[in-house]
Structure formats: C-alpha cells, structure tokens
Amino acid sequence: MGGYGDVELIKKDGKRLDGRNVDELRPVSIEVGVLPAARGSCRMTWGLNIAEVAVYGPMEAHPRKIQRPDRAVLDVRYNMAPFSTSDRIRPGFNRRSREISKVTAEALESIVMVDMFPRSKIRVEIEILCAEAGTRCCGITAAAVALADAGIPMKDMLVSVAAGKINDVVVLDLDKAEDNYGQADLPVGILPNSKEIAFLQMDGDLSPEEFDLAMKYNMKAVDEIHKIQIEALRSKYSGGDS
C-alpha cells in the first residue's frame, strides 16, 4: 500500500482504470500438467500474473530433523523470477518470499491430509514468472490445483483472492496501480466448499462495514475461481471433454 490517496483510480463512471467494475476479477485461466517432470503441476494466468507450480512427493523428508513422526511436512518455496517485474529482482530468497512461503505452507496444511504420510515431505515450488499484483493469491490458488493434479489427498480445494480499498471504495482483485496507490488490501484463502478461511492478512485500514463488503466480494470471487479450477482439472483428466 503506497498510501497515495489523491491518485485517481476510479473513473467518473464508477469503473476502474482498466475498465473493470468494482466487484470484477481480472481474467483468470489455469492449465494443468504443464511440467512433465513434476508429479503435479499447473500454470495460472491471473491478469498479468503468471505462476507455475510444481509438486513433488510425498518423499522422505531430508534433513531428518525436519521429519514429523505423525504427519508430512509441506516444503513450500515461493520465488519471483528475476525477470518477473520491470525492475530486475535479485535472484534467491528474500524476506518477502520467506514470508509468503510460510503463509502458503500454513494455508495449504489446512487442506492437505498430512497425517496420511508420516515422516515424509511434499515439495511445492511456486515460481512467479510475471508479476502484476496479487502474486501470493495466484500462487496459492495454483498450488491447490497442482496438489490435486499430483493426487495428494486433500479435504477441499483452496482459493485465494484479495479485495482492497482505493479512493475510499472497496474493490475486488487489485491490479498493480491499485495495489501501489490504494488504501487497503485484504488477501484471504478460502476453502470453496466449506467456506472456511485458511488464511487472512490485512494491509491498511478497513472499517467493519468495508471489511464485510470486501469479504462479500472475496466470497463471490472464490466461487468463480473454484469453477475455473474444476474445469482445468476436468479438461486434463477427462481427455478434453469436460
């Protein structure tokens, strides 16, 4: 959140700079099984964001000190490619990627049936190839699809989406300008069938009413994205005739 409240982000006709309504998502598409070497994989395009996720395992957890006798460990690595933004990103892990990896692992642990694979590790690699805004939501949503593709037992899918506030108006799915110059951002991870919240973060300030409206937008978007997840998986596994 840049906190530049005077930047005009909503036009006079009530639409956003990219022509979207306040409760409209950017175009979303998912392709499953894009990486042959991985057990499960997916490529997700969300606006200008492109994320590729690979899932490996379950496999023996190394080093042994990370093994848990009663459950599997989710080893999630979120990384932004150096060429993913206009300013080159220094390769390797940084504070932000560590935080997002941790948040993602904890969110995914709420859906993956980790108790079925004691002492093992499930590796989830999230690579952001192109970043606009909302890469953590894109990565988490794609990771859920890749895990399903890998045949990892899960009690539900997981969809992550963010709403926020720009020019004192609550909007869904912030783009880069809105993210930089907006007033608040509320990314959430929601289990689409049970509507349980797997993670919730908030940057900036929202009043209780604005928070409720942001959550309403998020819940509506979760259903839309869940349908796209299902279609992507069905088209892969039903031989194209979903």
Binding site: G57, A148, D149, A150, G151, M154
Partner: peptide, 20 residues
Amino acid sequence: QLGHLLENNGVIYLQASNST
C-alpha cells in the same frame, strides 16, 4: 483425491487418477 468414483459391494470408493 482427483479420480473416478466407483461402487462395489456397498462400498463407494475412488480410483485416483494420479497418486504415488
């Protein structure tokens, strides 16, 4: 899991499409 739903002898089960 992702897979086909089948039924046999009063048990409903899932034939996973891809599993380890």
